[in-house]
């Protein structure tokens, strides 16, 4: 998608076309015949996902955002399986500008839900890479377990991620990350960290 606008300032790319493609891309993509077995490629994506986890644990949000395509989506569905974000509320559905909002807010010093900040460690595993109909995109599934310590104890958030990577500017960039919490349709206490 080529636009004359800075997606960090105005949001034009979140439109019918994007939603339609999003729902299509995130439906029925984990198919056996599409699994990529080449070790170098699997390893490459595994490293990217581990790096992302480390950057988030260390709150290095600028480096983290740099892993994303300029026109990206961070999507935490509130219904198992994702649902249709045009017709239903998600836990979070951020475009680039809202992701930058999210980070800006955490840095104001007045985000009481993150003052003091949570300390987290993320385990990511079971990385599987899937080809797509478009040559320049890969879907990656991984499982995660986030241990989050804050004020009165440690809790665990778990689930699985679907990353859609696109190849652009000679690297793989994250275009969409869908974070599927196993308890996404239950009431959650203080969901204020970036997952």
């Amino acid at each position: 998608m080529q636009t004359a606008y800075d997606p960090a300032i105005s949001s034009y790319y979140v439109n019918d076309g994007l939603y339609r493609k999003l729902v299509e891309d995130f439906t029925d993509w984990q198919r056996e015949e599409l699994v990529v077995t080449a070790p170098e490629l699997r390893d490459h994506f595994r490293l990217l996902i581990e790096r992302e986890a480390r950057l988030l644990d260390e709150l290095r949000f600028d480096d983290w955002l740099a892993m994303y395509a300029p026109e990206c989506i961070y999507w935490v569905p509130g219904t198992p399986g994702g649902g249709d974000p045009r017709r239903e509320i998600a836990i979070s559905f951020d475009d680039r500008r809202r992701l930058e909002d999210r980070i800006f807010r955490l840095r104001t010093g007045y985000a009481w839900s993150q003052a003091p900040k949570s300390r987290t460690v993320r385990l990511v595993s079971n990385v599987e890479v899937f080809a797509t109909r478009e040559g320049a995109a890969r879907m990656v599934r991984s499982n995660f377990l986030i241990s989050e310590f804050r004020v009165d104890g440690t809790r665990f958030l778990s689930g699985w991620c679907a990353h859609r990577f696109v190849h652009s500017a000679e690297r793989w960039q994250i275009q969409v990350r869908q974070v599927n919490l196993i308890d996404c349709d239950r009431n959650l206490r203080n969901p204020s960290i970036v997952l």
Binding site: D101, R105, N190, S192
Partner: peptide, 28 residues
């Protein structure tokens, strides 16, 4: 369809960036 797609996103804002801070204050 358009208005609901937009209305879903405007509604996500306050629970994500406002309510969480109130709830932290209730706990405190």
């Amino acid at each position: 369809g358009d208005i609901n797609a937009l209305r879903m996103r405007t509604q996500e804002q306050f629970p994500n960036f406002g309510e969480v801070d109130d709830l932290a204050n209730f706990e405190e």
